[in-house]
Computed example of a mutant assay.
Amino acid sequence: MTTEESILNKIQILITNHFDTPQKAFEFFDEDSDRKLSKKEIVKLLKDAEINGFLRGIVSTKLVEGYDKNGDELIDWEEFKAAIAKIKK
């Protein structure tokens, strides 16, 4: 399993075990209720998914780079759904 697969797997486990739906997870981690996840909010999600502290900053940056389609350096609900869809594949 690659590092990316391992990280996505941990995120899936977190969402599956602690939230009724991916949208509930998104809303939980969207601390400022702006309907977008900032890098800080993504780091919190990664921490809760038990991603190593050293990797959190790197992974949050890579997640934003990989899934931020509109270039605002945030992950909105549609972009989050795309990431979740990749996890489920």
Rank of each mutant, 00 (worst) to 15 (best):
T2K: 07
E4S: 12
E5V: 04
E5P: 00
E5G: 08
E5A: 14
I7A: 00
L8M: 14
N9Y: 11
N9F: 10
N9W: 06
I13W: 02
L14S: 06
L14G: 03
T16Q: 14
T16E: 11
H18T: 06
H18E: 14
D20R: 02
D20N: 10
P22R: 03
P22E: 04
P22L: 04
P22M: 04
K24W: 01
K24C: 05
A25M: 07
A25W: 06
F26C: 07
F26D: 01
F26M: 03
E27D: 13
E27G: 01
F28M: 06
F29K: 02
D30P: 03
D30K: 00
E31A: 11
S33A: 07
S33E: 14
D34G: 08
K36T: 12
L37R: 00
L37S: 05
S38C: 12
K40S: 14
E41N: 04
E41H: 07
V43E: 09
K44D: 05
K44Y: 06
L45A: 04
L45V: 05
L45K: 02
D48G: 01
D48K: 10
E50K: 13
I51R: 03
N52K: 15
N52E: 13
G53F: 05
G53I: 08
F54C: 04
F54D: 07
L55A: 14
I58T: 14
I58H: 12
V59W: 07
V59C: 11
S60H: 01
T61G: 12
K62D: 13
K62P: 02
K62I: 11
V64P: 00
V64F: 06
E65R: 13
E65S: 14
E65M: 13
E65Q: 15
G66I: 05
Y67F: 15
D68H: 03
K69G: 05
D72I: 06
E73Q: 15
L74F: 14
L74D: 08
L74I: 09
D76V: 01
E79V: 02
K81G: 00
I84K: 04
A85E: 15
A85V: 06
A85T: 12
I87W: 05
I87F: 06
I87D: 00
